[in-house]
Structure formats: structure tokens, C-alpha cells
């Protein structure tokens, strides 16, 4: 049994402006690299998923679990890992990124994705791997590791989301809107007043409806809300990306589909209740103090349930993995584990 750890406070020294001026998250990470192999893996009669391998084929295996659900992977996500030491696996979850069919909600559940991770692991001939994921990626990491504990060497998680009801309520009701009433006005404004009693339901009807224009408008508003509040200082590039139709249709439709279905969990405490199964797996939890999408409470509860997992609180950081204090803490974690 590992010793219990006290939370570490990262990024407390130095002013915010000094931090921002001196470091770009990219400079904190490893250089951009190209995959040495990419492929499509059929995982059901309907779905095929895109995967790619980069770094050192003989290195320590790590699988990157992206957010959303529906966010897809990006090349810069390879850069969290030392390419000389890690065998880096990225894949796009069902229906998003380069996986097909695009934006499909059929046979698309948490447990389908958990099974896909296992199929991919076997397909690649990997025995055990490190699991790395933020936001929804942390949800999926917990679900996967609690189902296939023996396949997981370490866990690195960021912006914790366990799909508890109060975590959903925070972002789509009582929490974030109090700090971002301006962005909320746009999110709420996309739905007529008489349907605002159940905003997620109203979005779901539009995102799954037959009217393409209504679907696209809803998808844009849905994604813009999230991207407007993902970074401590609003990132215009990120907000523009979230307005892009190809990205946003998968992101909004799949997210909303998972949310109306409660993440396909048996109960909303399932992933916290399953924490005892993870004891013995070395783990680091990185969370931004000003993460207004997944508030720090989510990570605090996980840390309380699992005190052996090290909690790093990144001060003056929001939700995004690209926040400098978060990127730096994630790299420190993967560097440390690369020796194991």
C-alpha cells in the first residue's frame, strides 16, 4: 500500500502574467512527432475506430483517452509523453475524429468504449499499459481501469469527471452559469423560453432531429458554451474550433447522448464506489483550481476516496489540458512513471 499523499499546489509562485508570458503549454511538452503507424480497427458490425502509434515501439505502452465524449484526438496529445521512452497509442472513440460512422449514436455507450479499448490492446499485442485521460477521458479511464484492473500499470488523470449528478448539474445548471452569465445567456438563448426547464432534453431533441440546420445550430451553441469556459482566459482559437461543423456535430451529439443516459452507469456513484478496485495502481490526479467545467470538488472527492492517488492542484488554471500549469504537471507525472 502506497503512503497517503497531501495535495500539492502547483503554479503558486510567480504572477499569472509571468507564467503566461514565459511559457506556452507547447514549450512545456515534448516536440511534435508523427505516428509510425496508423490504422482502422473494426470493433462492431457498424463501427471502426482510428488508432495511431507513435514514440518508441519498444517503449512503455500508454493509451491516451480523449475527452467529450466525442472530442476525438489531436496530434499534440502525443506530446505529453517522452517519445524515447513511451510507446504512445492514441485512438478516436466511436463516432468521432477519424472513426466511422461519424457522429453515430448507435451502439455508442461507455461499455462499448471500454470493450474497444480492450480490443485495441489485444490487437496491438500489448499486455498492460498506462492509462492517461482528462475530463471525459478521466471518466472512461476510471470505468476501464475498474473493469480491467490487471491491464493498467499507472493512471494519469486530469479535470476529473465521475458522471455524478451534481457534476452534471454544476455545468448545465447551478454552477458555471453563476461565473459565466454572459456565455450562459448564449447557451440558454439557443432554446425557446418554454423549453428551458429541461435544457439538455431540449438540446437532445435538436441534436438528434431531422432538421439539419437546427441540428447544426444546436451543436454550435452546445460546443461554444463548453469551449468558452474551458481555459482560464478565453482562447479565441479554441472557441472558433468548436464552431466548426465537422468537429461540433460529433462532439455535441455524442456528449448530449451520454449525458441524457447518465453515462450509462448503473448509478451515479458507480465510479467512486469502484475506487477500491484501483488500490495498488500508482496514480496522479491533476486538476485546475478554476476548472469551471469540472470543479475541483470532483477531484477532491476522488482523492478522499483514494488518498494514495496523488492530487496536484494547478492554481490559476482552468479545465483544459493546455493550461500551462496543468500541462507541466501532466508531463511531470508521465516523466516520473516512465522510469517504472
Amino acid at each position: 500500500m502506497e503512503p497517503e499523499t497531501e495535495p500539492e499546489i502547483a503554479g503558486r509562485s510567480g504572477g499569472f502574467w509571468a507564467t503566461l508570458a514565459a511559457v506556452e503549454s507547447r514549450a512545456l511538452l515534448y516536440p511534435e512527432i508523427e505516428p509510425y503507424r496508423t490504422g482502422m480497427l473494426p470493433v462492431s458490425a457498424l463501427h471502426s475506430i482510428y488508432y495511431e502509434l507513435s514514440g518508441n515501439p519498444e517503449g512503455k505502452p500508454v493509451v491516451f483517452l480523449h475527452g467529450g465524449p466525442g472530442g476525438g484526438t489531436e496530434p499534440r496529445q502525443r506530446c505529453f509523453f517522452d517519445p524515447a521512452r513511451y510507446h504512445i497509442v492514441l485512438f478516436d472513440q466511436r463516432g468521432c475524429g477519424r472513426s466511422v460512422p461519424h457522429a453515430s449514436l448507435v451502439d455508442n455507450t461507455t461499455w462499448d468504449l471500454v470493450a474497444d479499448i480492450e480490443r485495441l490492446r489485444e490487437h496491438l499485442g500489448i499486455h498492460r499499459w498506462q492509462v492517461f485521460g482528462g475530463s471525459w477521458g478521466s471518466t472512461l479511464a476510471l470505468a476501464y481501469a475498474q473493469t480491467h484492473t490487471q491491464r493498467v500499470t499507472e493512471m494519469v488523470m486530469r479535470g476529473i469527471f465521475t458522471f455524478a449528478q451534481d457534476e452534471m448539474d454544476w455545468f448545465y445548471g447551478v454552477g458555471t452559469r453563476v461565473l459565466f452569465p454572459d456565455a450562459w445567456a448564449a447557451f440558454e438563448g439557443a432554446i425557446p423560453p418554454d423549453e428551458r426547464g429541461d435544457l439538455i432534453g431540449a438540446y437532445h431533441r435538436r441534436l438528434t432531429g431531422d432538421d439539419r440546420r437546427a441540428r447544426e445550430a444546436a451543436a454550435r451553441a452546445w460546443s461554444t458554451w463548453e469551449c468558452s469556459v474551458a481555459t482560464l482566459r478565453q482562447d479565441p482559437e479554441l472557441v472558433a474550433h468548436c464552431g466548426d461543423v465537422a468537429f461540433t456535430m460529433a462532439f455535441a451529439r455524442i456528449e448530449c447522448h451520454y449525458f441524457v443516459n447518465g453515462g450509462f452507469l448503473a448509478r451515479d456513484t458507480q465510479l467512486l464506489d469502484g475506487v477500491p478496485r484501483l488500490h495498488g495502481i500508482p496514480a496522479v490526479i491533476v486538476h485546475g483550481r478554476y476548472d469551471t467545467i469540472c470543479p475541483l470538488r470532483n477531484a477532491w472527492r476522488l482523492h478522499r476516496a483514494w488518498p494514495q492517488a496523488e492530487l496536484v492542484i494547478a492554481e490559476a488554471a482552468g479545465h483544459s489540458a493546455n493550461e500551462p500549469a496543468i500541462a507541466a504537471a501532466l508531463r511531470r507525472a508521465t516523466d516520473r512513471f516512465s522510469e517504472r
Binding site: 454544476w170 454552477g175 483550481r289 478554476y290 469551471t292 470543479p295 475541483l296 470538488r297 477532491w300
Partner: peptide, 9 residues
């Protein structure tokens, strides 16, 4: 309850 979610510590 509110600010508590951001400052659980």
C-alpha cells in the same frame, strides 16, 4: 454550497 465546489479544501 457553490464556491465550495471550487475550493473544497
Amino acid at each position: 454550497g457553490g464556491a465550495s465546489a471550487l475550493f473544497p479544501d
